[in-house]
Structures are given as C-alpha cells and as structure tokens.
C-alpha cells in the first residue's frame, strides 16, 4: 500500500514537476518568434543550456519508471484514472512555480478534463 502511494506520488507529483521544470526552462529561453521548425529547434537547443531542463528530464524519467512499476502491479484502468490528478497538480504548480494566472474558468475546464480522462479509462474494458 505504502509503495503504491510512493509510486503514484512519483507519477503524479514528480512527473508533473518535471514538466513544469521543462516549461520553466522554455519560458526562460523565451518565445520562439518565428513560426518555423528551425526557430523551434533553436529554442529547444538553448533550453538545454538551462539546468531546469535537465532537472525536468531527470524527474520525468523517474515518473516514467514509476509508471512502468505501477502498471506491473495494477490494471491500466485503475492506474491512469488516478494519474488524471496530474492536471490538478499541473495547475497548482503552474500558478505557484511559473506565476500563471489560473482563473476560475480554467479550473472548471481542468476539472472536466480530469473527470473525462478518468471516464475514458474506466470505459476501456
């Protein structure tokens, strides 16, 4: 039970925190002004010079292995609906770590996405 909680923590919190770190690195690089693939690749390459990018990838790797571990222990129809909580963690993290303005409207949308994702997986069987 305790190890299940630890694995879910890694998937939901550590995984989302990793994406938030990658997002922070990309925000530090700044908007890719030109809407062209070479400009996008340039922005990503510059982001690799920022430590948040590497921290983010390390955390995402931990979350990936935790997901594999959890899938080996439980059904996907149980694991994925629980991981839909990542959207809530993402919104809290976006507000706290990236200074985003998460309005009531956005919260309503995020809640619906969480419920919808959980239903998608519950309906898989």
């Amino acid at each position: 039970m305790l190890s299940d909680v630890a694995l879910f923590f890694c998937i939901i919190v550590v995984g989302t925190a990793g994406e938030l770190c990658v997002s922070r690195a990309m925000k530090t690089v700044g908007e890719a002004k030109e809407f062209m693939p070479h400009a996008w690749l340039g922005a990503i390459a510059r982001a690799f010079g920022i430590r948040w990018m590497w921290i983010g990838f390390a955390m995402m790797a931990i979350a990936y292995f935790a997901l594999l571990g959890m899938l080996a222990r439980a059904n996907v129809s149980f694991v994925i609906p629980v991981t839909a909580l990542s959207y809530v963690v993402g919104a809290i993290g976006g507000r706290w770590f990236l200074g985003e303005q998460v309005t009531h409207r956005r919260w309503i949308g995020i809640s619906l996405v969480c419920i919808g994702v959980a239903m998608v997986y519950l309906g898989k069987g």
């Binding site: 994406e19 990309m26 990542s86 976006g94 507000r95 985003e100």
Partner: peptide
C-alpha cells in the same frame, strides 16, 4: 516533443497540459 516544448516557450503550462 518539439511541438510540446516549443508551445511551452510562450503558453501557460496550465493551459497546454489539459
């Protein structure tokens, strides 16, 4: 990967993720 990381260079994570 390229489209996800690129859009995060300007758009909110709490917008892109959901």
């Amino acid at each position: 990967f390229i489209s996800y990381t690129t859009v995060l260079s300007w758009a909110d994570y709490s917008y892109v993720q959901p």
